[in-house]
Simulated scan of single mutants.
Amino acid sequence: MEASEIHILSVGTALPGDPLDNADLARHFGMDPVWEQWVDAFVGTRARHLSVDLGTGKLRSTLADLATRAAARALEGAGVGAGDIDLVVLGTATPDQLMPATVNVVADRLGIDGVPTYQLQSGCAGAFQALDVGRQMLRTGGHRTALVIGGELCSRHYDPGVDLARLDSAELVNFVLFGDGAGAAVLTAEQVTGAPVIHRVLNRLTGLNREPGQIVEWTGALDRADADRSHIKEDYKAIEESVPVMSREIAEEILGGLGWTAADVDYLLPPQLSGRMTRRIVDGLDMPLADEITRVDTIANTGNAMPFFQLEDTLPQLAQGDRVLGISVESSKWIKAGFALEVQ
């Protein structure tokens, strides 16, 4: 029998190491104070957590490490064990290896076995895609409980020895935008009083005949043989132009489909590219009655981990009747993503 409602029971997150602020980055890369002030003023991201040790260039934690920690916290918060999980889904743009899939490494560490597992290769939309897969499987696949994970190890694409002064803006901006992290949520088809219901998950490719806004080559900067090859590029101007417009379109589609208005939204989880961009997006969405849940200024853009950090802050605040709107835009090939939650 098809389940009518899917609830979020709990959320857990994990960050590596201590935060690195802009002054820390400036000192390591030998940049002058003007660069630090530029990051503060025009990017608006003050700190990030990195798995790479900038001093040695070695990774101190893997995506599997972070995802396992986040998932264990989510399981504990939900009061369920490994044997209660019927499927596992991971969304990431930065898996540890081609094989084995990181999702299966995480499942093994948690003691989960004998269930379907899925790993989705995607940028910022991957967490929403993972939520959608988990939700649909619970609704139609005869399963009761799903573990959904999102995470990134962006710092494996850093070259700690690079001369930032020699990089063009399309490469330089990535050193200040991104951080590492992981998040996880436990979903259930059981009826749980007080747990928010997932009403809608949007996932739509809209990049036909459009150039990518971001390109990340497969191998990490630390193990790349061709040192002259540009490993990661960001068309920040295209992103600045497109993301606010696409965010409004996502909000209008989700709200219109549910019969909600902007005034009905109690909590807004906006895209988290940078502090400055998030401010522009929120202003354009014009939801003055909604509480904005933002983490990008203190942990940077953690990609597929970020929606879980936002949900972790939101869930404890929810009361009966509260409504939540989450929005994300993946600029790699222009994907619209979003979800709507309600405490019924």
Score class of each variant (00 low, 15 high):
Cys154Gly: 04
Thr117Glu: 11
Val89Ala: 11
Glu171Trp: 00
Ala165Lys: 08
Val105Asn: 01
Leu172Met: 12
Arg73Ala: 14
Leu63Arg: 13
Gly126Pro: 00
Gly161Ala: 03
Pro95Gly: 01
Leu110Ser: 10
Pro116Gln: 04
Pro95Leu: 00
Asp96Lys: 11
Val133Thr: 14
Glu152Val: 00
Leu54His: 03
Glu152His: 02
Leu90Val: 06
Pro116His: 08
Thr140Gln: 14
Glu76Arg: 14
Gly126Trp: 01
Leu75Met: 15
Thr94Ala: 06
Ala130Gly: 10
Ala71Lys: 03
Gly151Phe: 04
Leu98Trp: 11
Gln119Pro: 05
Gly79Met: 13
Cys124Ala: 14
Val115Ala: 13
Leu87Tyr: 01
Leu153Met: 14
Leu131Lys: 05
Thr117Ala: 14
Asp65Thr: 10
His143Ser: 10
Pro95Phe: 00
Asp163Glu: 10
Val105Asp: 08
Leu87Val: 05
Ile149Cys: 12
Ala125Glu: 03
Ala64Asp: 13
Gln129Arg: 07
Gly83Ala: 07
Ala130Ile: 04
Ala170Leu: 04
Leu147Ser: 05
Phe128Ser: 04
Pro160Phe: 02
Ser122Lys: 06
Ala72Leu: 10
Ala70His: 07
Ala78Arg: 08
Ala82Val: 13
Gly161Trp: 00
Leu164Ile: 11
Gly114Leu: 05
Arg135Tyr: 12
Leu172Val: 01
Val88Trp: 02
His157Cys: 05
Gln119Phe: 08
Ser169Cys: 03
Met99His: 08
Gly123Arg: 02
Ala146Lys: 09
Val173Asn: 02
Leu66Lys: 06
Asp159Ser: 05
Ser169Trp: 07
Arg144Leu: 03
Glu76Val: 10
Ala72Arg: 15
Gly83Cys: 03
Gly126Ile: 00
Pro116Ser: 02
Gly142Cys: 05
Leu98Val: 15
Ala101Tyr: 10
Ala74Val: 01
Val173Ser: 01
Thr117Met: 13
Ser169Tyr: 05
Arg135Thr: 15
Ser122Asp: 04
Gly55Ser: 14
Thr117Ser: 15
Leu110Pro: 06
Ala127Gln: 04
Lys58Gly: 08
Gly151Tyr: 05
Gly126Asn: 02
Gly142Phe: 13
Asp113Ala: 15
Ala70Val: 07
Ala82Lys: 08
Ile149His: 11
Asp84Ile: 09
Val133Trp: 03
Leu131Phe: 12
Val115Lys: 08
Ala107Leu: 11
Arg144Cys: 03
Leu110Ile: 12
Glu171Val: 04
Leu138Ile: 14
Thr145Val: 15
Ala67Gly: 11
